[in-house]
């Protein structure tokens, strides 16, 4: 998160803010927001940073707040390893709180800066929503994106120079040789 912020602030990456025209909201992963503050007392906290980064990618007028206080936002329901645990029904039921929150924002996109939360909101809760399972109505919801997925999709690329490309190819070939990698020619 700090790295993305630094890239954007320093101008190392440039973003096209016209890729997405959907309303969007941001989910706060417990580990990076609340627990990080509990341990490191970081300020601004990662929830605030994530909101800022997302709003560099999509027009801020489309932003819909999920929780005014990122530190007290609710867990997606798959935290603490629950995504991998055999208690699927409990995991989904836990997520109903998140479902209600997302519905109430009215947002179409949910931005999740965590692998685990993204899986729960996209493949867990989002799938139930699309199946129209009672209790999982997420309103306007369409899609969940990783924060870095959103950033990657909005990138404006500055072309590399021929020297840079040649140097990269030489380094790559040396590495493949060292590691014994042979790719089939296309």
């Amino acid at each position: 998160m700090d790295l993305l912020e630094e890239y954007i602030k320093s101008g190392r990456i440039k973003l096209n803010t016209h890729k997405y025209h959907e309303t969007f909201t941001v989910h706060d992963p417990c580990n990076y927001v609340r627990k990080s503050v509990m341990i490191y007392n970081d300020s601004p906290n990662n929830g605030e940073k994530c909101r800022w980064i997302a709003q560099q990618c999509i027009d801020p007028s489309l932003y819909r707040e999920m929780c005014d206080d990122p530190l007290n936002n609710f867990c997606c329901g798959a935290g603490g390893g629950a995504w991998a645990m055999p208690y699927d029904q409990e995991r989904l039921d836990y997520g109903k709180v998140k479902v209600d929150q997302i519905r109430d924002t009215g947002a179409e996109l949910v931005i999740a800066p965590c692998h685990n939360c993204r899986d729960q909101i996209l493949k867990g809760l989002g799938a139930e929503h699309k199946k129209k399972t009672p209790g999982f109505d997420m309103g306007n919801y369409q899609e969940t994106l990783y924060l870095w997925e959103l950033v990657a999709n909005c990138l404006e690329y500055e072309p590399w120079s021929q020297e840079e490309i040649d140097a990269a190819h030489a380094a790559r070939d040396a590495q493949f040789e060292r590691d014994g990698i042979e790719l089939e020619e296309e």
Binding site: C30, R34, K35, M38, L71, N72, F74, C75, G77, A78, G79, G80, A82, M85, Y87, E90, Y94
Partner: peptide, 16 residues
């Protein structure tokens, strides 16, 4: 019990 495993260790309770 199942409790410590269904709890997601989200930390909200401890924070509050």
């Amino acid at each position: 019990s199942k409790w410590p495993w269904v709890c997601t260790l989200c930390g909200r309770c401890q924070y509050q």
